[in-house]
Design a protein around this nucleic acid. Structure first.
Length: 279
DNA sequence: AACGATCCCTGTTGGC
DNA sequence: TGCCAACAGGGATCGT
């Protein structure tokens, strides 16, 4: 699944290809991909065509590209979305829902089998109304300090795992890296968020930085099913570096105990029962 | 307000 | 071997 590292690697490729480029022709071909614009695919295409991309940025798992007229192109990879950058003559892959031809002849495509992702174009006013304005501090670029995080968690009673997935508190973590960071920090996923000490949170923030940094260095995590691929078609190599995610029953890399799996908020959580003591 | 459940979707997997 | 139900999950939405 694309989480912060995969989105960031995608951003770098898109910025390289799109910065300063004009969108000559845009074609959105799936209604769910355009669902965040009331006018659907037609509106997305019309509002994007002719615009020039200033740069491609990112906040959490959202890609946000400001345009020359003040609008912003927003994209989310959902759980199966990926971009490709290439020649318009290349064969169009199944589940290609968005295509944009740039003024240098390059074509950017969005492929998303499960359609959890989307492409949207918003004005500054619409930006305020959109979910993007509510996205919290980016876990990589502007991670909060431990005291700030303690403040944000307050007396929250929800499991820390659920709170890490809440993009309002810290943005960019998904199921894989949340599990990985909690393991590295030695924190059980069911610990109530508000009960974590500043010391716990310092270890957690350090773990998040390590886990995300390692994933970025390794080109992201490509699961074997709906493999996440970089825009250049390469697969990430971080899968083999995962410590607990998807490793139920296998030995914990730290102590050797069998990794366990439980369900929290309808999401699988993997943890070591020894290194991450139950609350 | 906070929390938890439900829904969306389709490729893959596992059980019979 | 073949079929089909179950599973995976980010975020929006809704009920409590």
């Amino acid at each position: 699944m694309p989480e912060l590292p995969e989105v960031e690697l995608t951003r770098r490729h898109l910025d390289e290809a799109m910065r300063g480029r004009r969108l000559v022709r845009v074609s959105t071909t799936h209604p769910r991909t355009a669902r965040h614009n009331a006018g659907g695919a037609t509106e997305v295409d019309e509002r994007l065509e002719g615009r020039t991309v200033r740069e491609v940025g990112r906040k959490g798992k959202f890609l946000a590209a400001p345009l020359d007229d003040g609008q912003t192109l927003i994209a989310h990879l959902g759980m199966s979305g990926r971009f490709t950058i290439g020649d318009p003559s290349e064969e169009v892959a199944l589940h290609t829902h968005f295509r944009a031809t740039l003024d240098d002849g390059v074509e950017v495509r969005f492929i998303d089998p499960r359609t959890f992702g989307f492409v949207a174009v918003v004005s500054p006013e619409e930006m305020v109304e959109s979910g993007l304005s509510r996205v919290g501090p980016d876990a990589w670029e502007m991670a909060p300090t431990a005291p700030d995080l303690a403040d944000a968690l307050g007396k929250r009673t929800a499991p820390v795992k659920a709170l890490l997935l809440d993009q309002v508190i810290v943005s960019g973590l998904g199921n894989i890296y949340a599990d990985e960071a909690l393991h590295l920090a030695g924190i059980h996923p069911l610990r109530p968020g508000g009960e974590l000490t500043v010391s716990d949170l310092e270890r957690l923030l350090a773990a998040i930085e390590i886990v995300l940094g390692q994933a970025l260095e390794n080109g992201g995590t490509s699961l074997d099913d709906l493999a996440y691929l970089l825009p250049d078609g390469r697969a990430g190599e971080n899968l083999e570096r995962l410590r607990v995610y998807g490793r139920t029953g296998l030995p914990c890399p730290t102590c050797g105990a069998a990794v366990e799996r439980i369900v929290i908020r309808a999401r699988s959580s993997h943890f070591c029962p020894v290194c991450q003591p139950a609350p």
